[in-house]
Design a protein around this nucleic acid. Structure first.
Lengths: 129, 129
DNA sequence: ATCAGAATTAGAATGATTCCAAATAAACAT
DNA sequence: ATGTTTATTTGGAATCATTCTAATTCTGAT
């Protein structure tokens, strides 16, 4: 991940980054587009996608993909887990302590070189239960 | 989940179920279609999708969705976890002991009514590392 | 046989995302 | 400053997975 200053972000990319950063929810590409448009009227859909991919590559935003068909973008970069509602599809962030030895156990059984382990709780959100 | 016998599966649905059951990999809808065609020449794409959704609803097959854009279907129904390769996208099943109290901790922090918790290891598969 | 409801079919439609080729803008050397 | 390369943006077309639709076929009960 590079220093944000050194990237010399274009105004389009700044508008996209701002949209993701200023939301406390997870946004999909369409929502990012709508928000970015309010600050930069002419920005195109293709550029929003390009920018999201670019910002993800540079480590400035996070990308999540489950539960729904569309990818969601997240201002949070640190490791965190998620809970998904089986009824309405709502996705919320979750801070969980990583159980001791879990990463190692998973790596060993899969023969994968582990990078991260994610936990996803599936159930019913407060509204749906 | 109903008794499989009592469902009176149509030959199309049996062909789809067979395709999923006889593979030791996770198949996407396209692969299921190809396989089902070999046993039931005229089956249509729409029916494969309908059948996959039906079989999933009845609890005869499992559905997973991450890492790639397409859903994957799985003969395994019992709870299990996954490992995904960050390089090539390969997805493998993983049996992990569920750490004591994790489900409860996650439910408590999210205020969700917990049903299941899934663990996903991300890293490099043996071929890519 | 007849009717109703369920399942299947082919193809059109949708939605998310990527690709493409042309237009702009920025960066860089002369 | 001027021309040249390089990166970025743009709009629209293309793609891919999936769902919808409307017509047809099958099944099973009367």
């Amino acid at each position: 991940m590079k220093d944000i200053e050194s990237l010399g972000l274009t105004k389009q990319r700044r508008a996209v980054l701002r949209a993701v950063r200023e939301s406390d929810r997870h946004l999909n590409a369409n929502e990012v587009f709508d928000d970015a448009r309010q600050h930069l009227a002419g920005i195109s859909f293709a550029t929003v996608y390009n920018s999201l991919n670019y910002l993800k590559k540079e480590g400035l935003i996070g990308e999540i993909r489950f539960g729904t068909d569309a990818k969601l973008y997240d201002r949070k970069l640190e490791h965190h887990d998620h809970a998904i509602c089986n009824e309405c599809g709502k996705l919320v962030d979750l801070e969980l302590p990583m159980p001791e030895g879990l990463l190692e156990a998973a790596a060993e059984r899969s023969n994968f070189k582990a990078e991260t382990i994610e936990l996803t709780l599936r159930g019913l959100c407060p509204d749906c239960s």
